[in-house]
């Protein structure tokens, strides 16, 4: 009985996770295309033509949790070692989503581009025993807004 419960969770986790991943990547690609001209730069020092722009902080943050299938797959990886493929796709999506949200924030503020982009991450719900913890990915930078 316990095993059936485990199997059901595994299958639900896998199917739902697969479906969500596919849908999310489609959305990421579309939004990246539409924001392609709003530059995101790691550079710290602005180019001369941007020296008279206004500047403001923009942020984008995502909190993600893993599905049951990924948890089990990753705990198996813990035994054998190696690349945790199940988490890689999740974190890749989280980073790109955070960047997109930051860009959307900048777009709302009328920014032309974002300098000095940085990422940070933190774990949430780590002390929820063996429950599924979550990870926050935060992207932030300095948006430069043209002055009139």
């Amino acid at each position: 009985m316990g095993f059936l419960y485990f199997l059901a969770l595994l299958i639900i986790g896998y199917l739902f996770g697969k479906w969500a991943e596919k849908r999310h990547y489609r959305s990421i690609h579309e939004r990246e295309d539409s924001l392609r001209d709003l530059l995101v730069l790691p550079v710290r020092v602005p180019e001369p033509q941007h020296l008279s722009h206004d500047s403001t902080l923009v942020t984008g943050s995502v909190v993600i949790s893993v599905d049951y299938f990924k948890t089990v797959a990753a705990s198996l990886r813990n035994l054998f070692g190696g690349r945790v493929g199940a988490y890689e796709t999740l974190i890749d999506r989280a980073r790109r989503e955070a960047t997109l949200r930051m860009q959307e924030d900048a777009q709302l503020k009328g920014a032309e581009l974002i300098y000095n982009v940085k990422y940070e991450t933190s774990r949430i719900g780590d002390n929820a025993g063996k429950g599924l913890g979550s990870v926050e990915v935060l992207a932030y930078g300095t948006a430069l807004i043209p002055t009139r």
Partner: peptide, 21 residues
């Protein structure tokens, strides 16, 4: 200017191994 014209198209399969889970 040394700035790129637009953001690069991010590769989908460098940070994501896409192996069959």
């Amino acid at each position: 200017t040394h700035l790129p014209g637009s953001n690069p198209r991010l590769p989908d399969d460098i940070n994501n191994s896409h192996t069959s889970p």
